[in-house]
């Protein structure tokens, strides 16, 4: 019983850490229409920076300052935002699909650095022994899982409320206006480049935070965690839930993660051990098909964007 409950708590913890990345993507794509295919890259930056800041010193990688976890999360967000500011300043003025290609390229290049800059990142072996929040409770599994889950629920909740306010604020309105009709918004004196860069940087900071949270909850990161499949998962979560809707983003994250881990559990029960890595690739096929079906049959996702009207007009 305790096993099942703490498993469920851990499930929610991980699903919501993905949810934070999906919220970030929703700021970029849902609100501003910025097509980022490099989610994994920003999450990787966050995860590694957080590991450097919080882990104990080690010979296998750089950093290891042993600082508090809150500092690690703040550092992760700042670093991912910084990388996004550079990538965005260079590419946001280009057409949407060029942004897609360049963010994809940036993520691939960042993953290569994580894999090969061994003295910084530990290379293919990654960084282990990243301190987990509430490690004082580690000998009581249930309390430990509950505390971690509560932490991620609170953080996600705060982000949700904040983003909801932001979406309804004049700032969010400008973003949607730019997304729908750039020329008209520009004619009203809104600088497209500035607003887009802000949305891109905020979204990337959330992706960095998601990477840091996962590093912390798993206690271990490796370059393999940040392959393009990660980006794809986050996209499926947003598209399934309904882009442009923060609640949809979180709903999509939980549902997709349930499908993903559920099919994984099914595979490990039903499939003989020697075929399991092959069966794992079938799961990726399945998730690709799910995405295609959602795009074809229900392009707005489960929830979809609600029309937002200013107070006093609606």
């Amino acid at each position: 019983m305790i096993g099942i409950v703490s498993y469920l708590l851990f499930f929610v913890t991980v699903a919501l850490s993905y949810g934070v990345a999906v919220l970030g993507l929703n700021v970029q794509w849902g609100a501003a229409g910025l097509f980022n295919v490099g989610v994994a890259g920003f999450a990787a930056v966050g995860a590694y920076v957080c590991a450097w800041i919080t882990a104990a010193p080690a010979d296998s990688h750089w950093g290891g300052f042993g600082l508090p976890i809150a500092l690690g999360w703040a550092g992760a967000m700042a670093a991912a935002a910084g990388v996004a500011a550079i990538v965005g300043a260079a590419t946001l003025r280009l057409r949407a699909d060029y942004l897609a290609i360049t963010t994809f390229g940036a993520a691939v290049s960042l993953q290569l650095v994580a894999l090969n800059a061994q003295t910084l990142t530990g290379g293919p072996f990654g960084i282990a022994f990243i301190p987990r929040p509430f490690s004082a409770l580690a000998d009581q599994p249930l309390a430990f899982a509950a505390a971690n889950c509560a932490l991620v629920v609170v953080v996600t909740g705060l982000l949700f409320v904040g983003l909801e306010r932001l979406t309804r604020s004049p700032w969010g309105r400008v973003l949607r206006a730019l997304r729908e009709d750039e020329a008209a918004a520009a004619a009203l004196g809104k600088a497209p480049a500035t607003f887009r860069l802000q949305a891109f940087v905020i979204g990337a900071a959330l992706m960095g935070l998601a990477g840091a949270m996962q590093a912390q909850f798993f206690g271990f990161i490796a370059p393999d965690n940040f392959l393009p499949a990660f980006t794809f998962q986050v996209w499926v979560m947003l598209v399934l839930g309904g882009s442009g809707n923060n609640f949809g983003a979180l709903l999509g994250a939980v549902l997709t993660w349930a499908l993903w881990t559920g099919s994984g559990t099914l595979v490990s029960i039903l499939v003989a051990p020697e075929y399991q890595s092959r069966a794992a690739s079938l799961r990726v096929v399945a998730i690709g098909v799910v995405l295609a079906l959602v795009l074809l049959l229900r392009p707005r996702g489960l929830v979809g964007e609600r029309p937002t009207v200013s107070r006093g007009i609606g």
Partner: peptide, 24 residues
């Protein structure tokens, strides 16, 4: 359906599905 950028997401999904099918 009209939106060109949705095609890019779809192609990203198609790419992963096609590759994983071969790996399978």
């Amino acid at each position: 359906q009209g939106s060109a950028i949705v095609l890019v997401i779809a192609s990203f999904g198609a790419s992963l599905a096609l590759r994983s099918a071969l790996e399978f």
